[in-house]
Design a protein around this nucleic acid. Sequence first.
DNA 1: AAATTTTTCGAACATTTGTTCTAATTTATG
DNA 2: CATAAATTAGAACAAATGTTCGAAAAATTT
Lengths: 194, 194
Amino acid sequence: MNKQTEILEYINKKISSEGYSPSVREIGKAVNLKSTSSVQYHLDNLIKKGLLSKKANLSRSLSNNKRNKTFLSVPIIGEISAGSPLLAEENKIGEIPVVEERYNKDLFALKVKGDSMIDAGIYDDDIVVVDKNIEPKNGDIGAFMINDTEATVKYLDTISGKKYLIPANKNYENFEVNENTQPVGKVVSLFRDI
Amino acid sequence: MNKQTEILEYINKKISSEGYSPSVREIGKAVNLKSTSSVQYHLDNLIKKGLLSKKANLSRSLSNNKRNKTFLSVPIIGEISAGSPLLAEENKIGEIPVVEERYNKDLFALKVKGDSMIDAGIYDDDIVVVDKNIEPKNGDIGAFMINDTEATVKYLDTISGKKYLIPANKNYENFEVNENTQPVGKVVSLFRDI
DNA sequence: AAATTTTTCGAACATTTGTTCTAATTTATG
DNA sequence: CATAAATTAGAACAAATGTTCGAAAAATTT
């Protein structure tokens, strides 16, 4: 392999595994270059090619131009154990990546069970991302807790003055919002494995 | 705001904007702490709380524990400029995160236009991830290039010996596969903003 | 008000680190 | 083979950086 690409790959590996850039000397050790100036030589070339960025005189400031985006993970909540809070660790069944611009502390994801929202394009086993910051309004798809034990995803709407959770499937009935129905947040995005 | 969270947020901001960790002194300057040891004091606490990681004696080695580094980005392809290869930079309209275990070099994403796959739960403006490594088989949903200028997402199936691209919408017609139809890959997952 | 805990400061120190310069070595080129 | 170009090495330097210690200041508790 080319020394330059060898260096670039080592930098990528280091950043993604450790979370920070290697130093010039670490690079040299990793790719068998005994002199720091040899490493500098290749770094300069990589920077000229636009493949790498770095701040002058600044330690461990290398960053890959091609893959720089950071993603944050949001927990996926599965079945909710009776009595445990929704976001309890025991209910977590996985993680889903979210782009940083969209991330906030009140995001979480739910695995949808059943076909009650199929006409909204939400299928069994789909994963929906819920923002607890946003209270679902009429017409929104929201996540709701029923009796503190079950999370459900439905349309919210008002019919003749009463609020209902409304499935997107003719085979299911509307459910009138009562004191055991707690809005959790608005559904903002959806993932599916095909 | 709490000094500790102020520091944590500054570190996050710095890493995501610059691509590398700030130094102790940079943190101090950012959050108005005149002594490096004051910063150390808070860093130690953050590490004890498990919110932060760092290597001893190593400059700019801070990394956020909540931040998952195992996500990689896959390009989203929009409209395909005539004559340009599918994955050309000019066709790229964004990026989408993919968990590392699932990542491979032949993944890319397409923005779906129209409602021809609506009965498969794929809606207008949905984004589907395509794996060029997997050739779509009968019954699969695949991405296909037509005349090298248009990418389309359809079911693939064989009807009385002939291969067809089959929409999931009664209002659209099946399309017989011909020499201008190139399979690109299999659709493996789906994203939607709601 | 006194005692205790938390937080901040200042200075000093040992390393780490990026940079630069010149020369040696290897590789490609005519 | 001779020459030029690309690559590597070694050493030295200045700046950046993490760490530690004791004391002061501020906030909290008793």
